[in-house]
């Protein structure tokens, strides 16, 4: 037996190397949203590396813009070098603090404005490395233990970012609204028109398309599009984008329009993940009170 195995070792290894990934692909392809031990392990192994490299590149960038780019000024005035460096450091730090403060204030204002939403704040640690899909990797201050689940809506103060696609204990991945797999139920502000916004998956620009049933109301460029809440994923009245191109195209029974997302995905730093709404919270507390009684 051992001799047989030894003789056919290469054939067996080749067979296993082809079949094992196919089996994994079969299991995960049937339900891509389902988290398995394998996906959890992969997220836990790769996410710290992405975060570390993101921090490394950010610090190199900080050193470059904060110091190395100013080396030329040493020749002009050596006596002021230390002072310039010191002040430059203070300015960069102050600018970073100001920007961070501004960003957090905006997020806070959004949280105050939408008191009906219970959100968890998360930091973006990596951007899409896949060739064919738009995926962001975010590092959350918590994880599935804190109630994050796949499918939850991800927002910023500017509007809808996407929804969670993979969640592990400490990390999560976000599928953007411009991904071809994304679908959001929407309505047009000030007009009785509802429809769906789907990602276009454009490699060069972040774009989505809105699909509406032909109606009597006329749509215009720059019409604001917000969530309708009909999909039970995104709470209503969250900014999705604006109609950017009015040239309609027929796709089945739908008219298709081009939509520019409200959020600039290229500069995302902080996002809010909707873990529930106040109504739900009130309902669940009432339910638990009822059970106690």
């Amino acid at each position: 037996m051992r001799e047989l195995l030894q003789r056919h070792k290469e054939t067996i290894v080749t067979f296993l190397a082809i079949v094992v990934p196919l089996f994994l692909l079969y299991v995960h392809g049937r339900n891509p949203k389902q988290n398995t031990v394998v996906t959890n392990v992969l997220i836990e192994v790769t996410s710290p590396a992405v975060k570390a490299s993101h921090d490394l590149i950010s610090s190199i960038q900080g050193v470059w813009f904060g110091y190395l780019a100013l080396v030329g000024t040493e020749d002009d005035n050596n006596s002021l070098k230390e002072q310039v460096d010191e002040l430059e450091g203070v300015v960069v730090e102050a600018q970073q603090l100001r920007d961070e403060n501004k960003l957090l204030r905006k997020e806070l204002a959004f949280k105050r404005k939408r008191k009906d939403l219970i959100t968890v704040t998360a930091h973006v640690i990596g951007r899409d490395v896949s060739a064919y899909a738009r995926v962001l990797r975010v590092h959350v201050d918590g994880g599935s233990y804190d109630g994050l689940k796949e499918g939850m809506a991800v927002l910023t103060n500017r509007g809808v970012v996407g929804r969670l696609r993979q969640v592990s204990e400490r990390y999560a991945e976000v599928m953007l609204t411009v991904d071809t797999r994304s679908e959001i139920a929407v309505k047009v502000v000030g007009k009785p028109i509802t429809g769906m916004v789907r990602g276009k998956g454009d490699r060069n620009r972040y774009l989505a398309k809105m699909m509406v049933l032909p109606g009597t109301e006329k749509l215009d460029v720059d019409d604001r599009i917000v969530t309708s809440g009909h999909d039970q994923v995104f709470p209503p009245n969250l900014e999705v984008g604006r109609i950017s191109l009015l040239k309609e195209r027929q796709e089945g029974v739908y008219h298709v329009l081009e939509v520019a997302p409200a959020v600039n995905f290229g500069v995302l730093e902080v996002v809010q993940i909707v873990v529930g709404t106040r109504d739900e919270a009130v309902d669940s507390s009432l339910a638990s009170e009822g059970r106690q009684r």
Partner: peptide
């Protein structure tokens, strides 16, 4: 696969 988790199911890039 680990670095592209949200984009394609596990096993795709292994295969």
């Amino acid at each position: 696969d680990g670095f592209c988790l949200g984009a394609s199911p596990v096993g795709m890039y292994m295969e």
